[in-house]
C-alpha cells in the first residue's frame, strides 16, 4: 500500500539545515492500522505530510498503492490525495463558514461527483459517525468530539483506501478520544488502511502495529511486549 525507501527531507534556512527525515524506510500493507510515535521533533509530522503528498522530499522513493509519486506534478498529486487519501487532524480543520453537510462535501466537489452521488455519500458518511441528524449545523455548534467525527466523515466520504491521522485525539478529553479511536478501528476493520501519528503511548498500543520515529529514522517496535494484549483487545471489539 505504502512503501518509502530511503526518503530524505531537509529543511533549509539561511543558516541551518535540518534533516527532518534521513533514509526513512517504511512499508505499510493494505488493511494495516499503524501508530507512529516518537518524541517532539523526531520527524513524525514530516513523515505524515510526505505520506499524504502534502510535502515533497529530496531523496529516496515513495510508492503509494504501487505508484511512484516522487515526480508527480501538483495536479496529479492533488488528484491522488483526493481519491486515495483521507486526512484527520488534531484541530479538526473544519471550515467554520460551512455547515456539516458542506464540510463533508468539500473533497467530493474536487472529485467531480454529481450532486446526487455527493448527497448520498455525505449522508452515508455522516450516518456512519452518528451525526446524520445534524447536517445543517455549523461546526461551532458541536462539541470537540463531534467535530472530529465530522472530520472523519469528511475523510471517509470519498472512500479513500488510506487514512492519515495526525494526533486525532490530541484536542479531546479521554472519553471522547476513546470513542474516536473506536470509530477508527471500526473503519480499519472495514478494510481502510490507517496510519496515525500520536505521542500518546496508550493510544498507540491500540493500533495493530507500532512504529517509533527518532531523529528522522524508523525503529519498529514489533517486539513490544504487550502486542498480544492489543490483539486480544482487538478481538474483543471485533
Amino acid at each position: 500500500m505504502l512503501t518509502m525507501t530511503e526518503v530524505k527531507k531537509i529543511f533549509r534556512t539561511d543558516l541551518v539545515e535540518t534533516h527532518a527525515l534521513r533514509d526513512f524506510n517504511l512499508q505499510v500493507d493494505e488493511g494495516e492500522f499503524v501508530a507512529v510515535t516518537g518524541p517532539s521533533g523526531s520527524g513524525k509530522t514530516t513523515f505524515l505530510n510526505i505520506a499524504g503528498l502534502l510535502e515533497t522530499f529530496e531523496g529516496g522513493k515513495y510508492e503509494l498503492d504501487g505508484q511512484d509519486v516522487s515526480r508527480l506534478n501538483d495536479k496529479k498529486r492533488s488528484q491522488l490525495r483526493n481519491e486515495k487519501i483521507g486526512f484527520i487532524f488534531q484541530s479538526f480543520n473544519l471550515i467554520p463558514d460551512l455547515n456539516l453537510f458542506d464540510n463533508v462535501d468539500v473533497p467530493l466537489r474536487y472529485r467531480g461527483f454529481k450532486g446526487a452521488e455527493r448527497k448520498k455519500r455525505i449522508e452515508e458518511s455522516l450516518e456512519l459517525v452518528g451525526l446524520a441528524n445534524r447536517m445543517k449545523h455549523l461546526p461551532s455548534q458541536l462539541s470537540g468530539g463531534q467535530q472530529q467525527r465530522v472530520a472523519i466523515a469528511r475523510a471517509l466520504a470519498g472512500n479513500p483506501r488510506f487514512l492519515l491521522a495526525d494526533e486525532p485525539t490530541g484536542n479531546l478529553d479521554s472519553k471522547m478520544a476513546l470513542s474516536v479511536l473506536e470509530l477508527l478501528k471500526q473503519i480499519n476493520d472495514q478494510g481502510t488502511t490507517i496510519v496515525m501519528v500520536t505521542h500518546d503511548q496508550h493510544l498507540a498500543t491500540q493500533a495493530k502495529r507500532n512504529i517509533y520515529v527518532r531523529d528522522g529514522r524508523v525503529s519498529e517496535l514489533s517486539e513490544l511486549t504487550d502486542i498480544n494484549e492489543i490483539n486480544l483487545h482487538q478481538a474483543a471489539n471485533g
Binding site: 499524504g52 495536479k75 492533488s78 483526493n82 487519501i85 468539500v106 474536487y110
Partner: peptide, 16 residues
C-alpha cells in the same frame, strides 16, 4: 490560510 490548507489536503489542486 487554514481553509486553503485543508482544501489542498483533501485534494484541491492549486488551479482549483
Amino acid at each position: 490560510a487554514s481553509e486553503i490548507g485543508l482544501r489542498r489536503a483533501v485534494g484541491a489542486s492549486k488551479t482549483d
